[in-house]
């Protein structure tokens, strides 16, 4: 399947992934991440319930401590 991740097209081998699986595969390693799928914010509790499939647009940005 092909998704758009942070405005770049990415090919992944498989039909569908949970948000949690997708973040692991795409090496998002810090614990806090803002994730949007097709413009909708996905909260941390929804990582196993929301799925990403062919043609979806995903945006993910790390939140880093310090302020």
């Amino acid at each position: 399947m092909k998704i758009t991740l942070n405005n770049s097209e990415v090919s992944m081998s498989g039909e569908t992934f949970s948000v949690r699986q997708m973040l692991e595969l795409m090496k998002f390693t810090f614990p806090m991440i803002v994730v949007k799928v097709n413009g909708h914010l996905v909260s941390k509790e929804e990582y196993d319930r929301v799925f990403v499939g062919d043609g979806d647009s995903v945006e993910a940005i790390h939140l880093i401590s310090g302020g």
Binding site: F30, P31, M32, I33, V34, L41, S43, K44, L63, I64, S65, G66, G67
Partner: peptide, 13 residues
Amino acid sequence: AFDRADQKLMLIE
């Protein structure tokens, strides 16, 4: 303008 990342996410959510 929080310090901790979990607080940043809480505010955004």
